[in-house]
Design a protein around this nucleic acid. Structure first.
Lengths: 340, 340
DNA sequence: CTGTTAGCGCGTTCAC
DNA sequence: GTGAACGCGCTAACAG
């Protein structure tokens, strides 16, 4: 049941493999009738040349890295990818970038297994997903170099990204410093379909900062749901309906903050007079809307992670001795937060 | 000066190739000292295994398609890529998606040459770039199937995308119907570094619609510059500074429309009371901001183009008899345009 | 434990 | 024109 090779075609057409090859690369020196016979055989066998073998034979030397990510339609993905491309473009050698899009955690693991087994790429950029120690070991044993880019929940594998727990705490302390004591959290469900835990990390920092400040966190102030503007809208609306609504909302992402903004407007609340809203990410849009948020350097993250991976791959490149660090998160104060 | 092979390593270490291979795949059955010797040789030779040969030998059957695009940090790119991934995920066979990012027209052509010569992928998605007849012939001769996705300036090669001239005209007629007579155009330079002509196409439709309506188009109403929010901001600011500023601006993209919005705000102009702003693309962000725009089905375009390409590649897949068509452009009226 | 050999699938010489 | 070798770089199965 294996796919037909050039030899099968040759046999079927009653010619030698050389002739088949000539037909394939439409060399002029093959008689029309022979060519036709070969083409017939190709069609009936549904033959397709093996690109690997072809490249090998043609003496190609490829260098390639992969990028594995659970989403591609997010602004943050685009920003990071830009950084990746910049780093790749700067490299002396040309690298192919292979995309592995995974839609679930299982698929992610499967992909990892395949990658480890077949080694189609020299290195791997792991975006927005956490690797278990087992998965790290798997890649490591396969000689597949990898660098994470995005989160920072564990520090036992190379990862370029901010510390989201610290980021959550930073954001919260900022709101506390503004005098807020009733602060709500709007974020993604922790056990998200892909198992990304950014929301959880930021929440952890949030809760921790509140604890340290001896500020109560009523359970109804924590709203978790699907990522996106609409769900956030609903979560915020519910918050405003509370007998004692929060005076400030910390959203785990800018997109969700936008939903909160809309909910506030529809609830007749003024921002920031009646309620402060703080986002996270500082995507381009936030500047336009005047949203206060926490800045993280997305594009730079992609750039640094890629450079680091390349330095690992290539002994020639001056190897960065350690995993590069991103500038710390910083609060960007705009028009949606203010002193209570 | 070719890169060292496993045989070179074997010779240098004074062992057989089998042993080197075992070391490479860290087989347990190799004595520590031999392993060390081999590793030394690997290091001194700067040996790196050829992944192609490895995969071939391991009996892998890869299927892969490439996507070639001039930019990656655009929302439209992300949206289309989402469609591509969806189509790929639906396919029965697993395809690797190799990404070729090109930063200039020359590089684009170079890439095409390399791709045609080495055939690293079975098919190619050509995004947002026009192919010359020569380039089409090149790919065709190489047996490299390709489908365009994005523009529609020529119809002599398979391309999934809307007619941008018609789109530009549609947008313009909409503004005309609102009563606007002083309409400006903000778009990319026609002879852009990458040579993308989307801007030119939309402009053509724009100018044509104005002509048909007998509406004058002063040269100073046409502003062309680099793509991006900032340049658009400046172009819009210049427009507002005109003795007779336009009452409406048609932007060739949503990103640029956002720049115009910011410029209007900074110029003390209200939108849409003082000036209408119309974008193009309908990226997700536009809905959030309430930007009036022209919807093109970006994600669907990526999806259909990919499906079509796969059907070409695979005789098994029911082949779509012709290049799939996208739904026509449509104006999405939100809060940035209104009747004069 | 280790060296040798036979493929992996294809392109490319050569002779015929 | 065409077929039969050889080689691309590596893995795996086999002897030793």
């Amino acid at each position: 049941m294996r796919s037909p090779t050039i030899r099968d075609v040759a046999k079927a057409a009653g010619v030698g493999v050389g002739t088949v090859s000539r037909v394939l690369n439409n060399s002029p020196q093959v008689s029309p009738e022979t060519r036709e016979r070969v083409l017939d055989a190709i069609r009936t066998l549904d033959y397709r040349p093996n690109l690997l073998a072809r490249q090998l034979s043609r003496g190609r030397r490829v260098r390639s890295i992969g990028i594995i990510s659970p989403f591609v339609n997010d602004y943050s993905f685009a920003a990071r990818l830009t950084g990746v491309q910049t780093a790749l473009a700067e490299s002396a050698e040309t690298y192919d970038l292979v995309f592995y899009h995974v839609s679930s955690l299982e698929r992610f693991h499967q992909r990892l297994l395949t990658l480890a087994e077949l080694n189609p790429v020299e290195g791997l950029l792991v975006m927005a997903i956490d690797l278990t120690p087992e998965q790290c070991a798997l890649l490591w044993d396969a000689g597949l170099l990898f660098v994470g880019i995005g989160d920072h929940l564990t520090d036992d594998w190379p990862l370029v990204g901010g510390d989201n727990v610290a980021g959550g705490a930073l954001a919260t302390r900022y709101l506390l410093a503004l005098g807020h004591r009733r602060i709500a959290y709007v974020g993604d469900t922790f056990a998200a379909p892909h198992g990304f835990s950014t929301s959880e990390a930021r929440y952890r920092g949030f809760a921790q900062a509140l604890r340290e400040a001896d500020v109560a966190l009523p359970p109804e102030y924590v709203r978790l749901g699907t990522h996106g503007r609409e769900p956030a809208y609903n979560m915020a609306a519910a918050l405003f309906d509370l007998p004692q609504p929060p005076t400030a909302i910390f959203c785990m992402s800018d997109v969700q903050a936008l939903g909160c903004l809309a909910a506030a407007r529809d609830a007749g609340l003024r921002v920031p007079e009646d309620v402060s809203v703080l986002g996270f990410d500082d995507v381009e849009l936030s500047r336009l809307v005047g949203l206060s948020t926490v800045r993280q350097h997305l594009e730079l993250g992609g750039y640094l992670a890629t450079r680091y991976l390349l330095s690992l791959l290539d002994a020639d490149t001056p190897p960065l001795d350690d995993v590069p660090a991103l500038p710390p998160f910083e609060v960007v104060e705009r028009q949606t937060t203010r002193r209570l």
